[in-house]
Design a protein around this nucleic acid. Structure first.
Lengths: 116, 116
DNA sequence: CCTCTATATCGACGCCTGTCAATATGAGTG
DNA sequence: CACTCATATTGACAGGCGTCGATATAGAGG
């Protein structure tokens, strides 16, 4: 389960629980914070931007290493974080791994923001 | 200048510079990442939520220490980060410091997201 | 099977950050 | 001025995170 899904499910749960305070609970805050943590790195933001602007909406690791001026293991590490957060989709075709934006993921994070 | 203002001004600058890649530049990414860093902590998200839900849209530090179960210096530290990011407004009246949401700040961050 | 290439994982290192205790600042009050 | 209370700042510590080099995995082609 991705972080984005967790953030949304805990929010839904909170809206139906009669519990204490009407403000953001500790567990929901934890999940949503992890979502923003995925965005809280300049290189990850650039990765999202490049993938979004790429032809066909997808890019492989080899296309991403050079513009960021980072080592390949580091790029793979950032991509994994974005995939785990539910922002990127990973599809392996042959030797290459293609990453694409999960449709609507960014918009859903924007919704999380306004629902604070 | 707040981080939010920096993030927006660098974005505006980027839209008019004829420079290289059409994707997110390094400095813009840096500024926007710092904005998300301010949101990438569960206690800061809860602070925003409590302030937003507070009566009159403002709360003082003494109201925020208990629900978060954190020490007063820690809460002040988080509040400072949110103020520096341009998300909270600080007004000192007498001995108390009242914090309120900067109008439209969250929405503008949502815009930053969709403009990635 | 062997090699080559693309990607992922591991281990280590340094930096950043969240937290607290202690202290400083500063406004109100007697 | 002395005292108190609310808040901010400082210094220190532990844990998390970004980065890299080295290594593992896995698919393609001879």
């Amino acid at each position: 389960m991705t972080t984005l899904q967790i953030a949304e499910s805990t929010a839904a749960q909170a809206c139906c629980t009669p519990s204490g305070t009407p403000v953001l609970g500790a567990e929901e805050a934890q999940g949503k914070a992890q979502l923003f943590k995925a965005l809280a790195d300049p290189n990850r933001l650039r990765l999202l931007s490049i993938v979004k602007a790429s032809d066909g909406g997808e890019a492989c690791v080899c296309d991403l290493t050079e513009p960021l001026d980072l080592g390949q293991p580091t790029v793979s590490h950032h991509l994994k974080i974005l995939v785990d957060a539910g922002l990127l989709y990973r599809e392996k075709r042959g030797t290459w791994a293609y990453y694409s934006l999960v449709p609507g993921a960014l918009e859903r994070i924007a919704d999380v923001l306004s629902a604070l």
